[in-house]
Simulated scan of single mutants.
Amino acid sequence: MSNLLAWFVATIVTIPLLGWYLIYITTVKVSKNKSKSIRLASDWTTILFMMAVYFIMTELWAKSFLWIILAVFFLIALLFTWIHWKLSGDIHVGKLFRGIWRFNFLLFLCIYVLLSGYGLISRILSS
């Protein structure tokens, strides 16, 4: 049983698009609301995309880039907080956190796609 669980977790971390799709399908079946399901799936899989980017970078360059990923995350949070404060004059923590989290989802989704493509091409050309 633990091997099955380890396999499932490894697959979801390695292929976060599969995790996003599974969460999306599940929430659409339960809530019948597609736009809410997209947002919910994106919110829940942000950490999967961050982990996948970390592991792809580690595999490609044999170095840990965790500090860069964390620095990017906190830099985005700092920038969003400053912009939010300048535009509204007050900080609404819930709205701010959702914006930061969803922007990080989009950013790490793009990085995941780019790194996956780069990794595939580099491995094909090096063979």
Rank of each mutant, 00 (worst) to 15 (best):
N3F: 12
N3T: 09
L5Q: 10
A6C: 06
F8C: 08
F8Y: 14
F8K: 06
V9F: 11
V9H: 06
V9W: 09
T11N: 13
T11Q: 10
I12M: 15
I12W: 01
V13R: 15
V13D: 15
V13T: 13
I15Q: 13
I15F: 15
L17K: 10
W20D: 04
L22R: 02
I23S: 08
I23K: 06
I23C: 11
Y24Q: 05
I25G: 08
I25P: 03
I25N: 13
T26V: 14
T26N: 09
T27I: 13
K29G: 13
V30G: 03
S31M: 06
S31E: 08
N33S: 09
N33W: 03
S35C: 00
S35Y: 05
S35F: 00
S35N: 08
S35R: 07
K36C: 01
S37G: 05
S37I: 04
I38R: 05
I38P: 02
I38D: 04
L40V: 08
A41Y: 04
A41S: 12
D43R: 11
W44T: 10
T45G: 08
T45E: 06
T45I: 05
T46Q: 12
T46L: 09
L48R: 02
M50C: 06
M50G: 14
M50E: 10
M51W: 09
A52P: 02
A52D: 06
F55I: 05
M57H: 00
T58F: 13
T58M: 13
E59H: 11
E59A: 15
E59Q: 12
E59Y: 10
L60P: 00
W61E: 01
A62Y: 08
A62C: 02
F65M: 07
F65A: 00
F65Q: 01
L66C: 03
W67C: 03
I68M: 14
I69Q: 00
I69C: 04
I69N: 01
I69P: 03
L70I: 15
L70S: 07
A71K: 00
A71T: 12
A71E: 02
A71R: 03
V72Y: 01
F73M: 12
F73V: 12
L75D: 05
A77I: 01
L78N: 05
L78G: 15
L79Y: 12
T81E: 07
W82G: 01
W82N: 01
I83Y: 08
I83D: 07
H84G: 00
H84T: 04
K86I: 10
K86N: 07
S88V: 00
D90M: 01
H92A: 10
V93N: 05
G94S: 08
K95W: 03
F97N: 07
R98Q: 12
G99V: 05
G99I: 01
I100S: 04
W101C: 02
W101L: 06
W101N: 13
F103D: 04
F103M: 11
N104W: 03
F105I: 05
F105T: 09
L106V: 11
L106W: 11
L107M: 10
C110R: 00
I111L: 14
V113A: 13
V113Y: 01
L114Q: 07
L114P: 03
L114H: 07
L115R: 07
L115E: 07
S116C: 07
Y118N: 07
G119E: 06
L120H: 14
L120M: 14
I121S: 09
S122F: 05
R123A: 15
I124A: 14
I124M: 14
L125C: 05
L125N: 13
S126P: 06
S127W: 14
